[in-house]
Amino acid sequence: MSENSTSTGPETLNDRWCAAFNAGDITRLMTMYEEDAVIVPGPGADPVVGHQAIETALRGFVAMGGTLHFSPRHWLVTGDLALGSAAFVMDGGHDADGVPVGLHGVTAELVRRQTDGSWKYVIDHPFGGAG
């Protein structure tokens, strides 16, 4: 089984994403997105598409240095697609000027099972779920 594989379903993707974020591991985070995935990089921000844009957005997020915590809400699976949602809190982060930044929200996520059995994000909207 590869690093991204899961025998239990897509729900472990959030745990792996959280662990990679907290470790500051951009390379590992990027393995969890399809090449042409879409992510909304911040509250009210326009979506960005593709690995290069996603990596840029994630670098800014990881640079805040906070610790992220996820609480799963639901996963609905049909075939090779799954719709998920998790509540999250990031504490201990700081902006470029050192001002504390705390983020929280509820995600809306669409993931797809890959040919190797792993799950990857197709659409990742960290602030797209209802609270």
Rank of each mutant, 00 (worst) to 15 (best):
94 H>T: 14
88 F>T: 02
33 Y>Q: 06
64 M>S: 09
62 V>I: 15
51 H>I: 08
79 G>P: 05
95 D>A: 11
61 F>M: 14
32 M>A: 02
66 G>P: 04
84 G>Q: 06
70 F>E: 13
57 A>D: 01
27 T>E: 15
32 M>E: 13
40 V>Y: 05
86 A>T: 10
97 D>C: 04
33 Y>D: 09
91 D>A: 08
80 D>N: 15
41 P>V: 01
66 G>L: 01
41 P>Q: 05
45 A>G: 06
71 S>H: 09
74 H>P: 00
91 D>S: 14
100 P>D: 09
78 T>M: 00
68 L>G: 05
67 T>M: 10
82 A>W: 07
56 T>M: 05
95 D>S: 10
51 H>Q: 12
35 E>Y: 03
87 A>R: 15
37 A>K: 04
55 E>W: 11
86 A>I: 05
77 V>D: 09
102 G>L: 09
62 V>F: 05
87 A>D: 15
96 A>I: 04
96 A>F: 01
46 D>E: 15
38 V>D: 01
103 L>E: 09
88 F>I: 03
96 A>Q: 04
52 Q>M: 07
101 V>D: 09
64 M>D: 02
89 V>T: 03
74 H>G: 11
48 V>A: 02
96 A>C: 02
70 F>N: 12
28 R>P: 01
62 V>A: 00
99 V>F: 11
30 M>A: 06
88 F>R: 07
65 G>W: 14
49 V>R: 13
98 G>E: 00
60 G>C: 00
66 G>Y: 01
35 E>L: 10
81 L>P: 03
51 H>E: 11
37 A>D: 03
61 F>K: 01
39 I>Y: 09
27 T>S: 15
88 F>C: 04
79 G>R: 05
74 H>E: 12
44 G>T: 04
74 H>Y: 15
83 L>H: 07
86 A>Q: 13
62 V>Y: 03
78 T>H: 07
56 T>K: 14
82 A>E: 10
51 H>V: 13
84 G>R: 10
61 F>S: 13
60 G>P: 01
103 L>M: 08
91 D>I: 04
100 P>F: 01
90 M>I: 12
35 E>C: 06
50 G>D: 14
99 V>D: 06
90 M>T: 12
33 Y>V: 06
